[in-house]
Write a protein that binds this DNA or RNA. Structure first.
Length: 648
RNA sequence: GCCAACGUAGCUCAAUCGGAAGAGCGGCUGAUUUGUAAUCAGCAGGUUGGGGGUUCAAGUCCCUUCGUUGGCUCCA
């Protein structure tokens, strides 16, 4: 019986049933077969050695293809698991899960009472090298669930048994696949390379603890992280990139540039912004405020501490108190606000609202406090006190779509000047949700429809919504590729209900509005951390804490330099003079290291002509120009919040 | 909170086997008056995160505690 293979170029080829991708590759050329990692068959990963059963679309995966790493990193994870088993004894090693991740792979392993440290990694790497050298063939086979459970029980792999049982429970799975290399067999969906000798370049990067299924009630396993590439140069480039990225880490750069400090003894998780960091924050807020007002928001300011009864009504008491700070006076309980919404609702309720007032959009740079466990604090990215650029849109049900779309557009507008990559996620009903499921469904669909209407790419994050409603989140990557949530758009029918807020409709009846909670920076602290890493401290001029450093060459130029600074400050620029008794070169070098956008060097020539000699931090020396001209151009650059120097 | 690693001057890092706590940068003082990435000299700076223990002797070994880092969890 023949089958028909359709290649990417549209050509078709006939094969016997049971032909393997490797055979097909060999048919085309031997070189191709050597370079192939696997195949894609009808959009499914397919091992090179796995027989084809039916006619199909067929494509080989070569080293340049984006799918290639899935094959060799999966195999890498198995090789690592096998190495650990050899080193620590098959009886003692219980495997959990070992997936591929963005730049590598990991495996969660229960090693009984053995505690791995990073010093153990070279030993494991050496064993892995052996396995690679042995070039063990990797064989795929399927088993009915009952036999699979027996096999895994025999191999003393309780986590695998649990995984199989869950597959049956959740998906009604009847057959599961295994991969075998030498004496090592592992439950795995695949795909894999045809033999262990085909992987080449890898490095184990770290060990850490990880709970079985990510649940801290379960046992903590040991996770070994590794990275692997098909080319040596790629591995080296990746490792160098990580090294480079560490230098951009905002926790190093921020304090080094004098932006902020965190005193973990006295104020853990509560950053102290120094004057330069505060300048930046203020610029961000100024920018945000302008845009909000353009977009029809009105600004409010609500209390930091409010009575517990408010938080009971809002539902925070029941759903969020683990994250809240409390305080008591005159036998009354108060809570420090973890969110701004109840305050905004009180603002809404202060006077009757007509349908003509809707949508009502109010915003606040509200400082919120949330308790976070000590182990998760992370520079500016995860803190216990932060300022949200928080707003609530009160609208009718009919206006939901249009308003959500408005917010999506608004996010784009706010992120635009920064020019970074972000990703949207739709989060659905969590376990500890409030309210009725039907309303949740309506809200979730409304968000989904809005995303579709804006043709946005997004992924769905089941069960990750807020307790009062589903949400769209925006994630931005830090220098090391870790993602942090920034903007969030949340739909909420619950709080309007619980607070009994109303508007008067055209028919003079009372109706309940819907609330859209939304933040764009999310946390201004976190957003600033992202910016520090994004720009590696070389901020666009409008954000830079010091925009211009005026450097007099000798003492006799100091007065003129000061007058230049006065002129600049008069126009609202952040300028400083460096009048220390140091060499010109020294001052230039320091300004350069501080990534100050403009250095104005002034000596005899400039002083005589009312000029300044402009040097950019990109090391470009522009020569002397009139101070007036410099101010004129700088004004333009800053006014438009340009991402690049106008002089370049 | 849990698992692992790490805590030496403001910063970056030395200190051999357990045997006298050091350097560079930065800071201060003085000299130098400099034209596009570091002028020279001198000085100050430490309970080696805290507490306890072993030892003739502890930065170094052990215990404990606090903190940081990498993860897990939660989330902006």
């Amino acid at each position: 019986m023949g089958i028909e293979i359709k290649l990417p170029d549209g050509s078709k080829k006939q094969y016997e049933k049971g032909a393997r991708p490797l055979d097909i590759a060999m048919d085309i050329s031997e070189g191709l077969a050597k370079r192939a990692f696997g195949a894609i068959v009808n959009d499914e990963y397919w091992d090179l050695g796995r027989p084809l059963e039916t006619s199909c679309d067929f494509r080989l995966v070569l080293d340049k293809d984006s799918e290639a790493p899935v094959f060799f990193r999966h195999t890498m994870a198995h090789i690592m698991a096998q190495a650990v088993m050899r080193l620590y004894g098959e009886d003692r090693v219980k495997l959990a899960i070992g997936p591929t991740i963005e730049n590598g792979f990991y495996y969660d392993i229960d090693l009984d009472d053995v505690r791995l440290t990073e010093e153990d990694l070279p030993k494991i790497e050496a064993e892995m090298e052996k396995i690679i050298k042995e070039d063990l063939p990797i064989e795929r086979f399927e088993l009915p669930v009952s036999e699979a459970v027996i096999l895994m029980n025999n191999q003393l792999q309780p986590y695998k048994v649990e995984l199989i049982e869950d597959l049956v429970k959740d998906y009604g799975t009847e057959f599961v696949t295994f991969y075998r290399q030498g004496d090592f067999t592992d439950l795995c969906r695949g795909p894999h390379l045809p033999s262990t000798g085909k992987v080449k370049f890898f490095k184990l990067t770290s060990v850490s603890g990880a709970y079985w299924r990510g649940d801290e009630k379960n046992k903590m396993l040991q996770r070994i992280y590794g990275t692997a590439f098909s080319k040596k140069a790629d591995l080296e480039e990746y490792l160098a990139k990580i090294e480079e990225a560490r230098k951009r880490d905002h926790r190093k750069l921020g304090p080094a540039l004098g932006l902020f400090t965190i005193n973990y003894d006295y104020a853990p998780g509560m950053p102290i912004f120094l004057p330069k960091g505060t300048d930046m924050l203020n610029e961000l807020l100024k920018f945000s405020r302008e845009k909000h007002i353009e977009d029809g928001y009105r600004e409010v300011s609500t209390p930091q501490i409010m009575s517990d009864s408010l938080w009971r009504t809002s539902g925070h008491w029941d759903h969020y108190s683990d994250n809240m700070y409390f305080t008591e006076k005159e036998e009354q309980q108060f809570a420090v606000k973890p969110m701004n919404c109840p305050g905004h609702i009180l603002a809404y309720k202060s006077s009757p609202v007509s349908y003509r007032d809707l949508p009502m959009k109010i915003f606040e740079f509200g400082k919120v406090h949330r308790y976070e466990r000590s182990g998760v604090l992370h520079g500016l990215f995860r803190v216990r006190g932060f300022v949200q650029d928080d707003a609530h849109v009160f609208c009718t049900r009919e206006q939901i779509q249009q308003e959500v779309i408005g917010v999506i557009d608004f996010v784009k507008k706010i992120y635009e000047p920064f020019d970074f990559q972000y990703r949207a996620e739709l989060s659905t009903r969590p376990e500890n949700f409030m309210g009725e499921i039907e309303l949740w469904d309506i809200a979730t669909e409304a968000l989904r429809d809005s995303l579709k209407a804006k043709k946005m790419d997004y992924i769905v994050n089941e069960g990750d919504g807020a307790f009062y409603g589903p949400k769209i989140d925006y994630h931005i990557k830090d220098s090391l590729g870790r993602e942090w949530q920034c903007a969030t758009i949340q739909l909420d029918f619950m709080m309007p209900e619980r607070f009994g807020i109303k508007y008067i409709g055209p028919d003079n009846n009372e109706y309940q509005p819907v609330m859209i909670h939304r933040a764009i920076f999310g946390s201004t602290e976190r957003f600033m951390g992202i910016l520090i890493e994004h720009y590696a401290g070389a901020f666009p001029t409008w954000l830079a804490p010091v925009q211009v450093k005026v450097i007099p060459i000798a003492d006799r130029h100091t007065d003129y330099a000061r007058s230049v600074v006065v002129s600049l400050r008069g126009k609202g620029f952040r300028a400083e003079v460096d009048d220390r008794q140091k060499s010109t070169n020294y001052k230039i070098r320091e300004a350069q290291l501080n990534k100050i956008p403009y250095m104005l060097i002034v000596g005899d020539r400039e002083m005589q002509n009312g000029q300044v000699s402009v040097r950019l931090r990109s090391e470009k020396d522009l020569g002397s120009i009139d101070l007036e001209e410099f101010i004129h151009k700088l004004t333009e650059e800053v006014k438009d919040r340009k991402g690049k120097s106008i002089f370049e």
